[in-house]
Design a protein around this nucleic acid. Structure first.
Lengths: 340, 340
DNA sequence: TTGTATGCGTTATCAT
DNA sequence: ATGATAACGCATACAA
């Protein structure tokens, strides 16, 4: 009834435990006679033997798990990154251990601790801190223990210390988006900037403002509004600026990510405004599930799956700390028609 | 530099290994004097001790991992289920190990094998076989070995043997949806049925046809078309029936899931048809990310997160095999306006 | 209450 | 090429 062990297999095959072990992970130096090897494998098949990864991890001193920490796996941004990371992990023969933080800095540290216990080969931190670095100290401490213990870490989007990081050119992408909007003729702008202290949101906001300014479009402070980095956050933020928008037809509402943008669109419609006739909307990320919405959402396309895969490779590489930077590409769609 | 072990902690605290161990998992019977307990914990903190989950798994005979196998974590259906399962796992102090099959039956078996190696406490199979049971034998064999070894299994959506299962009332939901559409006045229908052999797709298709028939609406075979269970599958299938739809304004195109429905909407628009003025569209699942699309997508709402959580509980419960059945709720939106 | 000793399943280091 | 045997880090049965 219990899983047969390698000893069982060895006995069944009439060989020693050591030989049985070698029959599976046949190293180059320590090879085993083909005949015996087959005998062991047959015995294993007959018994339904399944190696115990925990025992292997202990004996080898390293596990076969790759940790991924996200805010919320139901968020399409993270699930896309997870998909890419999963493929990379599979290619390396690793399993991925998933942990969600729900944007709670405390939970984030717990989660790193959790993955440390698993002796995960590496940890990829997607989605970063939101308290503007206040919790970085504790997190860094936890990560340092982990790294000192032999673990590897990579982050995506949010550089942390000098850890390897898949940097996303948020500022550049946002600047390009702003430029594109200016090129379309937009002069009045509202920015849904997300939560203050959210690094990705901050960078994108900064890029947008810079981009607009470069084209002579100044965005007054009261038209830069905060909100959660979620659909509801976008909805709420857009609802708040409804009065402003009513007074200025042809304004572009730019959210720092797609789900916020979609929430904003809903709020604008609920407020009686026509998108894009009266208000334009743009986002960031180019979430796959949202590519068919009407009007098509103008956004900055990010290769999320590749980003996940790149993060995995970075975390697994034994090179010194590296930085990969991926740049987004502006995709103009119908949500931001030209304004003459 | 390497992670300190419990022995290190014990030495540092001046107690035995056993006491150190008990200081952490203080059982009811085997309690340790508070003073010593604190001394051990202090020593652990001082050294930066982190228990080794692999070693614990081996010593305890059971790991702290919960396996989840999905087709594709980037699919919003699965990512929502994963989110719910993740919360349930967290509540049980378990980590979730994620594995994707990309709908490959071979890979599915590999993945079960992989999770068996991890000695996962339980495996939740979300998203089922697609080859109409042809690969069930191998899969069942793998699962049987796993269960015989002490593992627990639960499936979501697809009963397998008499394993615990979160059943989704696909037929009922589909029947309800069909009834709702009939109530709105639809008499001409096209069903995008997904892939033949995909149990969920099959059940929903069957329910739709039954529901329509119950209201006197027969759907001829040539208006029941196949396609992948994906956005592109919906797009392709809808493209194929474009001629039919052009000839029959007021037809309802019902896809067996939301992402197919969205793909279909795109195809219909690309084909020059107005949705919903000329063609109505409906889906199934009520994917959160799609709730703000315009026109609002008529669908059957499924509590995906709860389903994931329920599956986790079912898999973890030590009760004998159970069945939980969750029923969807029809949500009528603007994509299927009344047809007088 | 605390300590000693054993075992968990595997890999790896020795001999042979 | 193969076989004993010692780790690996922890939990626990048993002894004190």
């Amino acid at each position: 009834m219990p899983s047969p062990t390698l000893s069982d297999v060895a006995r069944e095959a009439g060989v020693s435990l050591a030989t049985a072990s070698r029959a599976f992970n046949g190293s180059a130096t320590r090879t085993v006679r083909p005949e015996l090897r087959d005998r062991v494998r047959d015995a294993a098949a007959r018994l339904g033997y399944t190696p115990d990864a925990n025992a292997q991890a202990m004996a080898r001193g390293r596990s076969s798990a790759l940790g991924l920490v996200v805010h919320d796996i139901a968020d399409p941004y993270f699930s896309s990154v997870a998909a890419g990371l999963g493929e990379a992990a599979e290619a390396e023969g690793l399993v991925v251990t998933l942990a969600s933080t729900r944007t709670d800095p405390v939970r984030e540290v717990e989660v790193v601790e959790l993955l440390s216990r698993q002796r995960a080969r590496a940890i990829v931190l997607a989605g970063g801190r939101l308290d503007g670095g206040r919790s970085d100290a504790v997190l860094t401490a936890a990560l340092t223990r982990y790294v000192d213990g032999g673990g590897r870490v990579a982050t995506v989007g949010q550089p942390l210390g000098d850890l390897p990081c898949v940097r996303i050119a948020n500022r550049d992408g946002a600047r390009d988006l702003a430029a594109a909007l200016c090129g379309l003729g937009y002069r009045d702008v509202v920015v849904l900037r997300g939560p203050v202290g959210h690094q990705t949101a901050d960078e994108r906001t900064q890029g947008l403002l810079e981009g607009f300014a470069a084209h002579g479009v100044e965005v007054p402070g009261e038209r830069v509004v905060t909100g959660d980095f979620t659909r509801d956050g976008g909805y709420g933020a857009a609802t708040g600026v409804l009065p402003v928008l009513r007074g200025r037809p042809g304004t572009a509402v730019v959210a720092v990510n797609d789900v916020m943008a979609v929430g904003a669109m809903a709020a604008l419609r609920d407020g009686g405004l026509d998108v894009p006739a009266e208000v334009a909307v743009a986002g960031f990320d180019d979430i796959a599930t949202l590519r068919d919405v009407v009007p098509g959402l103008t956004t900055v396309r990010l290769p999320l799956q590749e980003i996940g895969a790149a993060a995995a490779r970075l975390a697994l590489a034994d090179d010194p700390a590296q930085q990969v930077v991926v740049r987004g590409e502006v995709v103009v769609r119908a949500s931001t028609p030209p304004r003459p």
